[in-house]
Amino acid sequence: MTASTTRWFPNSMPAPIVDHHTLPWWQACAEHKLTAQRCTHCNHAQIPPAPICSECHGNSFEMTELSGKGTLYTYTAVYQPIAMEQTLPFFIAIVELDVSGTSCANSVRLMTNMVDCEESELQIGKPVQVAWESMSQYVSIPRFRFC
């Protein structure tokens, strides 16, 4: 785990609930690596990881590390608290992740949070990059900020 002191969300936020297939993705997150599950047969990329490739039905995968760059696809500013002592509003966003330089056949989107910005700065299409938040020694969450 990479040391990081920046915190945006309290520890009382819901923690990841994982199954056999999604655990490796979160384990990579704990090492501050943003990955996509890439099918070694057809290169289709998917997040979250699943038991089989939805395109060719293969079941051989590699977790491909992505650059952590992308663009804002859509967002909402939420005014209801999810956790104790939380700053409101907070921003739920979908980010289209850049897969250039990898073997992934398609770009892939991730549901996440925008941080370090005002609501008025949220603009679809603007470039973003990952900002890791370490919640504990086990769990790090990929949030995003504008480049």
Partner: peptide
């Protein structure tokens, strides 16, 4: 499992 992937983001 599906909700557990997005709840950490407050969904």
């Amino acid at each position: 499992a599906a909700m557990g992937q997005v709840m950490p983001f407050g969904m």
